[in-house]
Design a protein around this nucleic acid. Structure first.
Lengths: 335, 335
DNA sequence: GGAGTTTATGGGATCGATCTCACATGGGAG
DNA sequence: CTCCCATGTGAGATCGATCCCATAAACTCC
């Protein structure tokens, strides 16, 4: 690998002058500039990123830790992150904690130690105190994605859970449904509260209240969707529509209804949340609330990049809107 | 951030001695070792990875470029990569070319410039010559995933497409199917040839030949699966089973059959390939050939790590086996 | 008791860049 | 004619580690 010294010798100038040409700053005569560029070309010189980063204290690298990169949801988010960071000419380094706090801490510290210029985090739990301290000591700006806050965060991007839930229930109400069940995620999950408010708003707009909807708390999984639906049917609960907290649940709901001999959407309408990868493959194709996951990632990355540009700026916060994706799982309420 | 000099001063020793303790090599007296460890603890010292890498020419970082990280398939592969690299105490840096040759080249060169110790590649096309040259000049070992070869590759991991296709068709034959259609991927795609051989083997085992199966060439997409199936039905082609080249195609096949009023598996059996994320969510749940994608990634990463350990070793090659996942889309052939 | 080896430690060059500072030149203003 | 500022260039310190080499003490072996 050619170094900056090789270039300087070949062009008959000093290291400093080559550096000026490469970084495009300071004064350089047109004549030497051309000679240097010629030498760079001929040697195929590319600056050593490590040395640059060590000396200048800027690595041009953004770090990200998400719960689990192996998942379509986060893969999609990473896609958004990469789109933004690449456009800005920065590299991206992603890793995951896989729901293990030690792994997660290790992954984040790794990013700090590799001198990332900034860090993006999508976590399920608050950050461990020692990790917070390490990030703070390194003066690395952090942007949080999702509802989970963090003391060192300088920015945050989150989904409009309120609006999404309001639209979902609103859509069911507009189709004449009055006996609605909502399968909700973990009660302590940050998003859940916002969604309940959204549901309340939709109901209020139709002169109803939370008393008019049945909420079942569980977890975001197909299994829960299935078992909860079966339980409702078994106890003879009367409902015409189900709003599932996410599309995994919705998949379980659809399966349970099929096994129970119920037709969707003739007997029961189902609406999901996320527009996950498999939503279109379910039968019937699932009507759902779309979360623009890649856009969330892109927005978060851009926010971080902005933070890097203007160090002293205030806390930045952005909310990303959802949209309704109409497929075939919602129909008019049966009389 | 505390540096090695801070530690050495606090412990009253030289930089060299601290380095020896941290790297755990060379001679250090027990007394000083303890003093140094105490100082490290108190200062919260963690070595600067950049400086280490610059000086020692080993970054402890593995790079990977796959076609598209945003996709569930590759996300799953990255999961496998991360499992292996993390276990080995190395960091992983992943990026994608998104089917753009320039992007892809940029991504790979970026990894080279960041001094990755080794590189993993899953590409759709042969590597551009200038990129090959850059990798060669940097003496970085490369492991290729998938069938696509590459001159600088020191190792390769690929799927047993032959066995997978043989098992798929064998399974259909075992269920009495004799009128089988195979929807194949791009003819120039490396895997396709191996699969055709596998199909031939399965047929031969039942005293049949390639003349007894209809092969339709197209592309790996739901749209093609749909249109190809529709075309077959329209032209009145007589078949009892379809072997789709991947699960996306299979999704299209199922949809077309449903729209045509055919029942699966009563009228037509369908088998896919990949066991993609959505295979279980299709209706009926898809019987398919499982590709252990994460295992492929893990194996490739381990192979690269092995290569890093023994620099002079020969070309390493591994084939990963498939397995049959039986769900509900294949049944006995109708008479 | 001297030669050779093992153990222990520090000094200083080095990796490949950036960046400050010193210095030189030339032209325009006063 | 001097002063100042814009332009142009290079020397050398520096980032934070690794690692080779010099040195010295302690120990082993004839």
């Amino acid at each position: 690998m050619a170094t900056i010294d090789d270039v300087s010798k070949r062009a008959g100038v000093s290291r400093s002058t080559v550096s000026r040409v490469v970084a495009d700053n300071g004064y350089v005569s047109e004549e030497k500039r051309r000679a240097i560029q010629k030498a760079i070309e001929e040697l195929g010189y590319r600056p050593n990123t490590l040395a640059q980063a060590l000396r200048s204290n800027r690595s041009n690298m953004i770090g990200a830790v998400v719960v689990d990169v192996g998942t379509p949801y986060f893969a999609n988010m990473v896609y958004g992150l990469q789109r933004a960071t690449r456009k800005a000419g920065k590299a991206l380094m992603v890793s995951s904690g896989y729901a293990d706090q030690d792994e997660e801490a290790r992954a984040i510290i790794e990013l700090v130690d590799r001198s990332c210029d900034g860090i993006l985090l999508y976590l399920e739990r608050p950050l461990r105190a020692d990790v917070v301290e390490i990030i703070r000591a390194a003066h690395i700006p952090v942007v949080m994605i999702g509802r989970m806050g963090c003391e060192v965060a300088r920015g945050s991007v989150q989904l409009d859970n309120f609006g999404g839930a309001r639209d979902a229930v609103g859509f069911l109400l507009d189709h004449g449904h009055r006996k609605i069940v909502h399968l909700s995620g973990q009660a302590d999950f940050g998003d859940t509260a916002a969604r309940l408010e959204g549901i309340a708003e939709a109901l209020a707009a139709h002169g109803m209240s939370m008393a008019d909807i049945k909420v079942v708390n569980g977890e975001f999984s197909q299994e829960f969707g299935y078992s909860a639906t079966m339980a409702l049917l078994d106890e003879g609960h009367d409902f015409t529509a189900i709003f599932a907290g996410d599309d995994d649940m919705a998949a379980g709901v659809l399966l349970a209804l099929r096994h129970a001999g119920k037709s969707v959407p003739l007997d029961v309408s189902v609406i999901g949340f996320d527009d996950a990868f498999h939503a279109r493959h379910l039968w019937p194709p699932l009507t759902t609330i779309r979360q623009p996951v890649d856009e969330i990632g892109e927005t978060a990355a851009n926010l971080l990049l902005k933070l890097l540009g203007e160090p002293g700026s205030a806390m930045l916060q952005t909310t990303i809107g959802t949209s309704l994706v109409v497929r075939d799982s919602v129909g008019p309420a049966r009389p």
